[in-house]
Design a protein around this nucleic acid. Structure first.
Lengths: 119, 119
DNA sequence: TTGACATATTCCCATATCGGCATATATATT
DNA sequence: AATATATATGCCGATATGGGAATATGTCAA
């Protein structure tokens, strides 16, 4: 093996900027491929491929209507990502608290070099 | 051009399962590379490379202490992802509402074929 | 200085990825 | 049936990616 098992999941699907753009666009209302092509600046085949990826991981649903295929975002499939980021919520709250405390202690004792910063 | 501009950002960094694992591990407390290697099942160079990626996008901070380098998750850098997923929150709430309404109407009028489902 | 330890970097290989182009497929219209 | 329209698929080229192995770099200890 060489590359990481390609567990093409929602995280991967969303890593592509154009796909995020498409998801945002399709969240508002369903759209036919042609409309998406017009909206995002890509050729139709590329858009179809992105839609395939999104569909495979359940991030969009399709509705076939004549020769048109309407896609819409399946917001529920984004929830796991939301939940994952949420697990870090308490940590960034901690960090904010620390920064606040530091700021306060600095205003009390006028800046006595508490430096520990690194890139 | 060929591949999508390689905007190595947080979304991309987080698309890698091992990197998510590392982030979760380093959120609790800072760890030296050796500890991370022991925790996640990868060789040291691979871990260093993942840490590089994470560091480049600001998802981890490092603290050099003698010959050890301690990494910790910078939860704040995860907030943008959180915010992005959050923009879809109202949509999945909508969908839940729809499902609920559908279920209710079905119990009232015993299932009069309102089917419109597709993969 | 030399040697041990911790971590990063480089090179290589296999594979994945993205976009463009050409083409296939499906459906509607005439 | 023939044609037009909408979308998907296949192939190609360029590049990115991840892991392994070897090696370089940096730091501490003797």
């Amino acid at each position: 093996m060489a590359r990481a098992a390609t567990t093409s999941d929602a995280f991967n699907a969303v890593a592509e900027p154009k796909r995020r753009e498409i998801l945002a666009y399709l969240a508002l209302e369903e759209r036919a491929v042609g409309e998406i092509v017009a909206h995002v600046r890509l050729r139709q085949p590329s858009v179809s491929k992105h839609l395939r990826v999104l569909h495979d991981v359940g991030l969009v649903r399709e509705r076939r209507r004549g020769r048109h295929i309407f896609y819409r975002t399946n917001a529920n499939a984004i929830r796991p990502l939301h939940e994952w980021t949420k697990t870090f919520e308490r940590f960034w709250q901690h960090q904010l608290l620390r920064v606040k405390e530091l700021a306060e202690s600095k205003t009390q004792t006028s800046n006595i070099s508490t430096d520990k910063e690194n890139s």
